[in-house]
Amino acid sequence: MDGRKRTFATLTASAVVATLLCGCGAPAARVDGARQAGLAFEQALADADYARACTLIAPQTREELEENENKPCGPALEGQALSAADGVPDTQVYGRQALLRLPTDILFLSQFADGWKVTAAGCAPQAGEPYRCSVKGG
């Protein structure tokens, strides 16, 4: 009986530790993926290649942008006058969501089947409230 109790305790403790380790932190690959997607978006803005930047925007955000501006994504994005940023962003990733803080822009991203996509751009913090973003989903 003592052996069985020990086995039960060991198995349960192992399960708890496994739970601790899984799904809670962001692996380096995921952080890097979010960072690269954000930087690619900023580079497309810097190159004024809005068609390329639009391929890096999440579907719902893109639809919202096109509906609000009543234009295709490229011209609609150009009209937002987003300032392109460079440098190494401060990247925070939780699960499939990420926040990138660049010197002159803040981006929110989400992981999709075909990679990380920008869900909000041109964001600025507001005390106690969600970030105010020039481009965002519904």
Partner: peptide, 30 residues
Amino acid sequence: ALLFVLSWLAQSIAGTAAYNEQRLRELLPP
């Protein structure tokens, strides 16, 4: 007691990640 502490610690760590994932979806900082 030990299993409680470990489970509660696991809840706090997983909870932080889940809470922050939800906050990022709502455009709030983690």
